[in-house]
Structures are given as structure tokens and as C-alpha cells.
Amino acid sequence: MDLSFAVVIPARYASARYPGKPLVPLRGATGETKSLIQRSWECATSTAGATAVLVATDDERIAEEVRRFGGEVVMTAPDCANGTERCADVIERIGAPADVIVNLQGDAPLSPAGIVAELVSRLAEDPEAAMATPAVRASRSVYQHLITDQLAGRVGGTTAVIDSRDRALYFSKRVLPYIPAAAAEEAYAEVHLHLGMYAYRPSALARYRAAPAAKLELLEGLEQLRFLDMGLAVSVVRLDPLAWDAIELNNPSDVPHIERILAERGIA
């Protein structure tokens, strides 16, 4: 069964680490600068088949920028705690524009757009799953980088623990599962780096919005843990390592790295 899908890009201005982040200019391969939200929108619109691409925000400055480059905006409640709640708020306001709602992060302009179709297909194949999300197998170098960050007290990424049915058992900002030293020397350890992209059924979004935040969700700072706490199945699409680093813009120091990858990939 084919499922229709719409892409929602949650965007907020009041980021604690980087206020005004969606409006930060990023220089592309031709030297042209575009705002982060425009580059995220262009990433979303490169996905074929979407019934709609919507930016969900509660800030008029972001909305004005989206209208400037021709995007479509849905104004959402200012009290949305995370991107999933913002996607749910869109559904409450305008109804479900498709069978599946894909959350493409507004700070991830380097996300592989082709993954969207895989997430939607997974929900079609796994009717019991409330949500689908991708995770990339960690290469030896990525695994060592994650461990180095962890030992230094830094969060290097979110890992997904996945069962034999490709269902999520847990997500953590710690490096999970534990890997013995011998296994860590393999080309690919059994560690999967989670990518912050989600495909939800509208009914699951409604249940998520109605439920209180889970204790583990608040401790880890990971919105997807609420689905697991509610007992809902989360299907994980396992991916081989990407050809480029899908860096998110979380801090000002990330800007030159993203601009370098834009140039290397020839993205204007």
C-alpha cells in the first residue's frame, strides 16, 4: 500500500544555544548566501512526491523569511516543547495533509532527502509502527569519535539500540550498546547513530501531543523517547554510512563545516 506524505519543518527562533538560528546565512558553492531555513526548505522540496512542504513556527521573523523565498508557513503555538509537538500542532490546526507526516529538522540542511521515501515505505510495510526514523551504522572512526567525546564529557551524537525486527529499544546520548574491545575493531560496530528525521502517522502525533512528557525523554533530552514510554512501536531504517557528514547547525562553530560540505557537494 502506497502512503501519501507531507513534510513539516519545525523552526523556532528562541534556541538556547543559538538564538535566531533559522535565519543564519549559509554560503553555498556559488558564493550565494541563503538562510538556514531556506536551505532546509530546499532540502525538503528536493524530495519527490510530497503533497506539501510546510514550515511550522511560532515566530513572525521566521515566517516572514519563509514567505520571502516562496515557502508555506503554518503558525503554531509558542508552548510546543519540541519539533514533534510542533508537527502535532500543525495537524490540530489544518488537519492531516497526508497519510504520513515527515519531520525534517529545520537545522539539518544536509539531511539526505532520499531517506524520506524509505521512512514512508517502512510505515507502509510495518502497519503496527507509530513512527519511523533512520539510524546510520557507525564506522570504526565514527565509533571512536563517539567514545572520545563521551570520555571527555561531550555529547557526540544520539545512538539507537535496535532489535532484530528493526524496532527501537532505546535512544540515548550515551554510546549504546556497550561494545567489547575486540568487536570495536570491526569495520562497523553494532552502534547506530540516529538521524533526527521522523515519519509519523497522524494518529500517533495526536496521542503524543495528548501525553505528558516522559521522565526519560526529559532526562535524555530526546523527544522520541515519549513514543517508547507510551508503548508505541518505533521502526528504525538502518542505513550504511553516508557519503558526507550530515552535520546539524547547533552552534556558531558548525557554520564553516556546513559551508564546506555545501561547497564540496556543489549545492548553490
Score class of each variant (00 low, 15 high):
residue 1 M to T: 14
residue 3 L to D: 15
residue 5 F to T: 03
residue 6 A to L: 08
residue 7 V to E: 03
residue 10 P to G: 06
residue 12 R to Q: 09
residue 13 Y to E: 14
residue 15 S to I: 07
residue 19 P to A: 11
residue 22 P to E: 06
residue 25 P to Y: 10
residue 25 P to C: 10
residue 27 R to L: 04
residue 27 R to N: 02
residue 29 A to K: 08
residue 29 A to S: 10
residue 32 E to S: 06
residue 33 T to K: 15
residue 34 K to D: 02
residue 39 R to I: 08
residue 40 S to D: 04
residue 42 E to L: 14
residue 42 E to Y: 08
residue 43 C to A: 13
residue 49 G to E: 08
residue 56 A to T: 01
residue 58 D to K: 05
residue 61 R to Q: 15
residue 62 I to A: 05
residue 67 R to I: 15
residue 72 E to R: 11
residue 76 T to I: 09
residue 80 C to Q: 03
residue 83 G to R: 00
residue 86 R to Q: 10
residue 90 V to G: 01
residue 90 V to F: 02
residue 98 A to P: 05
residue 98 A to I: 07
residue 98 A to S: 07
residue 101 I to K: 03
residue 102 V to G: 00
residue 107 D to H: 05
residue 107 D to I: 02
residue 108 A to H: 03
residue 109 P to N: 05
residue 111 S to M: 10
residue 116 V to L: 06
residue 121 S to V: 05
residue 122 R to N: 06
residue 123 L to M: 11
residue 123 L to I: 10
residue 124 A to K: 12
residue 124 A to D: 10
residue 126 D to P: 05
residue 127 P to R: 14
residue 128 E to T: 15
residue 128 E to Q: 14
residue 129 A to V: 07
residue 130 A to Q: 04
residue 134 P to V: 06
residue 135 A to W: 01
residue 141 S to H: 12
residue 142 V to A: 11
residue 148 T to F: 12
residue 150 Q to A: 15
residue 151 L to I: 15
residue 151 L to R: 15
residue 152 A to S: 15
residue 158 T to Q: 05
residue 162 I to M: 08
residue 171 F to N: 00
residue 172 S to C: 08
residue 174 R to S: 12
residue 183 A to Q: 15
residue 183 A to D: 15
residue 186 E to S: 14
residue 186 E to V: 13
residue 188 Y to A: 09
residue 188 Y to F: 14
residue 189 A to E: 08
residue 191 V to L: 08
residue 191 V to W: 06
residue 192 H to I: 04
residue 193 L to H: 07
residue 195 L to G: 01
residue 195 L to A: 04
residue 197 M to D: 00
residue 197 M to G: 01
residue 198 Y to V: 04
residue 199 A to Q: 02
residue 200 Y to P: 00
residue 200 Y to D: 03
residue 202 P to S: 12
residue 204 A to T: 10
residue 204 A to Y: 07
residue 204 A to G: 11
residue 205 L to K: 01
residue 206 A to E: 12
residue 207 R to A: 13
residue 207 R to H: 12
residue 207 R to P: 02
residue 210 A to F: 09
residue 214 A to K: 02
residue 216 L to H: 05
residue 216 L to A: 10
residue 220 E to F: 01
residue 223 E to V: 01
residue 223 E to T: 00
residue 224 Q to W: 06
residue 225 L to S: 04
residue 226 R to I: 02
residue 226 R to W: 02
residue 227 F to R: 00
residue 228 L to H: 04
residue 229 D to L: 06
residue 229 D to P: 06
residue 233 A to Y: 11
residue 233 A to R: 13
residue 235 S to H: 11
residue 236 V to C: 05
residue 237 V to E: 06
residue 238 R to L: 12
residue 239 L to P: 09
residue 241 P to D: 09
residue 241 P to Q: 09
residue 242 L to N: 02
residue 243 A to R: 11
residue 245 D to L: 09
residue 246 A to Q: 04
residue 249 L to W: 00
residue 251 N to L: 13
residue 252 P to I: 10
residue 256 P to C: 12
residue 257 H to C: 08
residue 258 I to F: 04
residue 258 I to C: 06
residue 259 E to T: 13
residue 260 R to M: 12
residue 260 R to K: 15
residue 266 G to H: 09
residue 267 I to D: 07
residue 268 A to S: 08
